[in-house]
Each structure stands twice: as structure tokens, then as C-alpha cells.
């Protein structure tokens, strides 16, 4: 068991450019069932052994794809997400960085009328170790095990996974939910999935400055979760008013500070790692039975 994707996931790639093809190949090598690519106007050919279709709807009809990873550049990314939703895709993971906030606000609102789950945008994707890789994560650093990892950042996810793996602790599923201000799947959504997943016994949550998703997640942990959750918040030294790489990582009008998030998490029973180097150790303290 895992969340969101496993060995049965049938993945299609929207946006077969250099990056889409490169990561399709890595996902295939990892054992993911990459069943189709979508490139409007190129339908009918094969790229690296993957059949290409003009539209997502055709690809779904012909291959039974149920998940999509989107590498479409910002101007067309919102459109690509809605095309996946209309074609009946169950899970879309949007890697694209730099989508205008207004486009995502409209897209997210329109998704209320669809069953599809969106992860991202501006995210590294999802890995269920030894089963499925969707996106751009270095899956080789993961190993199967009982800890769910969820983060707003890509490379910091790798850092946390690496610390866990060094302590002999594997992961159920690792996912990056994205660094933008409007994202499809939130911390709360992910925590609920991990809580319901029998293979997950504890969760590592990595937040950062900006917005109030961590504060909202803290309350959710207290009221809805039985499994231990530990956290780290990046950006404790970020100056106010500056966008720290991610579009959503900004302290604005005194809101979104790391200190407020840490206080909210600790007040709700979430152990927060004081340094980014002790995320693994913090988990071991909170859930000693998981240490390998």
C-alpha cells in the first residue's frame, strides 16, 4: 500500500519536450508503467517506444491511462490540467514552474467540478518506492518503508528522505506538493491520505515560509490524526517581503513567518526539527519503534 500511485498506475506524459522525455525515460527505468505521451499534432508516432497521441482523451481511450504528469510550459499548463480532468484522468501531477497565479486560481476553482486530484504545480512529483515514479525526483535515494514524506520543496524532500534512509527508515510515499501559492493538493489533503494508508505509520512534513498551510495542517494533525507527525519549516532566516525562490515563499504583511508556523505546529503536538540536519533524528524520537 501507499498513497496516490503504485505499481498499477498507468502514466501518461503531457508535454513531450526535452524534460518530459528525459523523465519519462527515468520513470520507465524505475519500473513505472508509462503508457502514453500527448503531443498535439504528433499523434500516431512513437517516441522512445511510447505511443504518442494528439489529445489526452484519445490517449486515455486507447491505453487506459489513469495518471498524467504535466511538463507543459506555463502559458498552456492550466489548459493541460483541465484537459486531463475532462479526459477522466484520476491523478495529474503538474511539474511546471512559473504558472500565473490567476490561471491557477481559475483552474483550481474549475477542478471542483471534476473528480481528478491535482498535485502541484511547481512540484517535484511523487515516488512510491520500488513501485512508481511520477515527476522528477531522484527515486534511487528512496527505499520502501513506513514513513510518508510531504513537502513544499523538491530538494529539501531529497534531504529529508536521505536522512531517513541513512537511519535505515524507508518511505511509504514521498511527494512534493509544490511551491506556488495555489496548489492542487494541500498538506491537509496529504495528511488525510497518509492517515488512511495502512502502510504509513508516521509522517514527515516539510513546510516553508509564506501562507498559512502549515498552521492549518497543525490543527488537522491535532484533531484528525492518530499517527505521529514531525516537521521542519524552512526559511527561519528569510527577510520579509522577499520572494525566496518559490512564488509562494514570501512573508507578506507580517504573515507567513517560520516562527509562527513552528509555534502552531508545536502547540498542536507536532515535533519540529530545530535544524534541517535533524529531520530524521526528530522522527526517530517521535516514533522510536520505526528506527531500523
Amino acid at each position: 500500500m501507499a498513497i496516490l500511485c503504485d505499481r498499477n498506475t498507468k502514466l501518461l506524459i503531457q508535454g513531450m519536450g526535452r524534460m518530459g522525455r528525459f523523465h519519462a525515460d527515468l520513470s520507465r527505468q524505475y519500473g513505472t508503467r508509462v503508457v502514453a505521451g500527448v503531443a498535439p499534432g504528433k499523434g500516431g508516432v512513437e517516441i522512445d517506444g511510447t505511443p504518442i497521441f494528439d489529445t489526452v482523451a484519445q490517449a486515455v481511450k486507447q491505453t487506459g491511462a489513469n495518471a498524467s504528469v504535466i511538463f507543459v510550459p506555463p502559458p498552456g499548463a492550466g489548459d493541460a490540467i483541465l484537459e486531463a480532468a475532462d479526459a477522466g484522468i484520476e491523478l495529474a501531477v503538474c511539474i511546471t514552474e512559473g504558472i500565473p497565479a490567476l490561471d491557477m486560481a481559475r483552474t483550481k476553482s474549475a477542478l471542483q467540478h471534476h473528480a481528478m486530484r491535482l498535485v502541484g504545480p511547481n512540484c517535484p512529483g511523487i515516488v512510491t518506492p520500488e513501485q512508481c515514479r511520477i515527476g522528477i525526483m531522484p527515486a534511487q535515494i528512496t527505499r520502501p518503508g513506513p514513513v510518508g514524506v510531504v513537502s513544499r520543496s523538491g530538494t529539501l524532500t531529497y534531504e529529508a528522505v536521505d536522512q531517513l534512509s541513512r537511519l535505515g527508515i524507508g518511505q511509504s510515499t514521498c511527494l512534493g506538493i509544490g511551491g506556488d501559492s495555489v496548489i492542487g493538493t494541500t498538506f491537509i489533503d496529504t495528511l488525510a491520505l497518509f492517515e488512511a494508508d495502512p502502510a504509513t505509520r508516521a509522517v514527515v512534513m516539510i513546510g516553508e515560509i509564506g501562507g498559512s498551510a502549515e498552521e492549518e495542517a497543525a490543527e488537522f494533525v491535532k484533531s484528525e490524526m492518530s499517527k505521529p507527525v514531525v516537521a521542519f519549516i524552512a526559511g527561519q532566516n528569510a527577510p520579509p517581503g522577499k520572494r525566496m525562490g518559490h512564488a509562494g515563499a514570501i512573508i507578506a504583511g507580517g504573515k507567513g513567518k517560520a516562527s509562527d508556523k513552528i509555534a502552531a505546529l508545536e502547540a498542536n503536538g507536532v515535533a519540529v526539527s530545530p535544524s534541517p540536519a535533524t529531520i530524521g533524528e526528530t522522527l526517530v524520537k517521535a516514533a522510536p519503534q520505526l528506527a531500523g
Partner: peptide
Amino acid sequence: NGAGLAMATLDM
């Protein structure tokens, strides 16, 4: 490389 790790590096 990466915004999250870059922020965490400052924290470190």
C-alpha cells in the same frame, strides 16, 4: 539548488 534547500541552508 532548489528554493527549499536554499532556505534550509541559511537556517543551517
